[in-house]
Nucleic acid binder design. Sequence first.
DNA 1: GGGTACCTGCGT
DNA 2: ACGCAGGTACCC
Length: 264
Amino acid sequence: MPELPEVEHAVRRLRPHVEGRVIVHVQRWHAATRRALPPAAARAVAGRRVEAVERRGKYQCLRLDDGATIVAHFRLDGDWHVDRDGESPAPHARAALCLDDGARACLVDPRAFATLERRPPGTPAVRGLGPEPWDPVLDGGGFRARFVRRRAPIKAVLLDQGVLAGVGNIYAAEALWRAGIRPSTPAHRVGEARAARLLAAVRAALEDGLAHHGRVFATADTPATEQPLAVYGRAGRPCERCGAPVRRTADGHRGTYWCPRCQR
DNA sequence: GGGTACCTGCGT
DNA sequence: ACGCAGGTACCC
């Protein structure tokens, strides 16, 4: 589920349950979460108050009152599910923060890829991330400067969290479609004007996602409540702008969706 | 950079 | 049975 819009929505839902609360203890139900949050880290987190919950890219940072941070990342499937301590955990619940009011924030994650880690006080919670897409000082020129020397396809550059934080496979495809840029275009050949258009397109695509809480559908029949996507997951169906069939190509194992007629 | 691994479930 | 899945970190 998680690209930036869904992570942002998850943070907004989680925040009222945990901000100001004390973590009584941590549950770890799966080997992957026990690895990411070993016993000493789980112990260190117990008894700490959560002062704030913040999103950075696709990471969620829970700032604790001792200066440590719990960093959560949903990877492909994660989500929060809040219930009550002592209930039988939801299917695929991998870990939980048990709070002093009896609530329990469960990390639910069928594929067990999601991570929950503790960063000790004084260490950066998240490293190597580029600017947030809405960073007010970021403009087309500044954006382009971050990839102007790179020969990789522009789509790979958009997925690079060090260039810009928070764009994943769906919104990379949608933004490139909105900007009319072919995903395979070498990044260094995206000039000033197209870079500016692309940044605006990324912002617009993500804003559209936020408006729909990151909930996305990619198949034929369209519940009006979910976000319509122009190209992602629509291989073979007509491009909304020009009617040409949307193509799916595979770089590596990951699908890339684009319109061969209006993305040049 | 590109390949692979980490996991599990789902649709075909 | 097989291919696919919205991410990231690791290896050359």
